[in-house]
């Protein structure tokens, strides 16, 4: 009897929940939510948060080396912002994790064991200052496209965090574009630097949006996130948006598209491009990208080296 009654209420809760989603009423941290919604959000937001933090590392490699006082200041500020985004997002994730009794420390451990992933673009190596510019310009540019799609996410705390993040991301893309413009207007060597960076990052940029269909890799979260109105567009739509925004800009800088077959099909109104090499995504999912282990190791070592500081802080608080 009691079991039946309970089941009914769960069903009612679910119904009310979906009603809110349909009406565009925001879900808040303490509201009831189905398990699937919570776990989807945790996965999405903790991956996003950790990607901000791990994403600071490839650019950080160029902070001390930035070629002028102005650039040193700019890239320092940018990387600081990324850490700030990570902080903001991990707090949102922490609230969602509460029912499971998990904390930020657990997320860190999940990162170290490979259970928690970070975005494919941050597993790649950086070779020149051109990469520092390209990351700001196109990697942040790609992130802006996926993140603005979620500005109206049904989960209130995430949507609000994204509003703050996207506002700063616009500055990041400008910062990256300014570096790229300076190089594009510079010497032959400087121009070669950005063409080379573009060639090396192209595959990762395309992969970043995820496979168009489930069949490509056997899994995809895009259906669930769309069902719960966390996002609105499919992976392919977002990738097309990226092309529409950046292909003309790439060409106007006098750069060549790494994909020689790429063109716009006027009739179908789509960009036709060469399918990226998806094995990259499988490799980074196992943390087997070019710099996956090195960056994880850096994060792990600093976490261990600083353990005494966290202990000391905990001791003064209690």
């Amino acid at each position: 009897m009691t079991n039946l009654a309970l089941a009914a209420t769960e069903e009612e809760k679910m119904e009310r929940f979906m009603e809110k989603i349909e009406k565009g009423i925001k879900i808040e941290a303490d509201d009831w939510m189905p398990e699937e919604y919570r776990t989807t959000l945790i996965k999405l937001i903790s991956m996003h948060g950790m990607s901000e933090i791990m994403g600071a590392l490839p650019e950080k490699e160029w902070v001390p080396k930035a070629p002028s006082l102005h650039r040193k200041l700019g890239i320092m500020a940018k990387v600081q912002d990324e850490m700030g985004h990570g902080q903001l997002l991990l707090r949102v994730a922490e609230d969602l994790l509460k029912p499971y009794g998990k904390t930020r420390g657990d997320l860190m451990q999940d990162l170290f064991t490979g259970k928690l992933k970070f975005h494919n673009v941050f597993h790649a190596e950086t070779r020149t200052w051109g990469d520092a510019g390209l990351i700001g310009w196109l990697v942040d540019g790609a992130a802006i496209i996926t993140q603005t799609d979620m500005l109206n996410a049904s989960y209130g705390p995430y949507a609000r965090a994204l509003h703050r993040i996207c506002a700063e991301e616009v500055f990041h893309a400008q910062h990256g574009e300014a570096i790229i413009m300076a190089l594009a207007e510079g010497t032959d060597e400087q121009r070669a630097m950005i063409q080379d960076a573009l060639n090396r990052w192209w595959n990762s940029l395309l992969v970043f949006f995820g496979p168009a269909a489930k069949e490509t890799l056997g899994t995809s979260k895009q259906d669930v996130t769309i069902k719960y109105k966390i996002r609105t567009k499919t992976n392919e739509q977002l990738r097309q948006d990226f092309f529409t925004k950046y292909v003309p800009r790439i060409l106007s800088l006098g750069l060549e598209l790494p994909d020689k077959t790429m063109h716009y099909n006027e009739e179908k109104e789509v960009w036709v491009y060469q399918e990226p090499d998806w094995s990259e995504l499988k490799a980074v999912a196992r943390n087997e990208g070019a710099r996956s282990q090195a960056r994880l190791n850096l994060r792990r070592t600093s976490y261990q080296t600083n353990a005494w500081v966290r202990d000391a802080l905990a001791a003064t608080i209690s």
Partner: peptide
């Protein structure tokens, strides 16, 4: 200080 970026004892301190 810039070499410390990303390596401080916690994220808040990094910022």
């Amino acid at each position: 200080g810039s070499e410390w970026l990303g390596l401080a004892p916690h994220i808040e301190e990094d910022v």
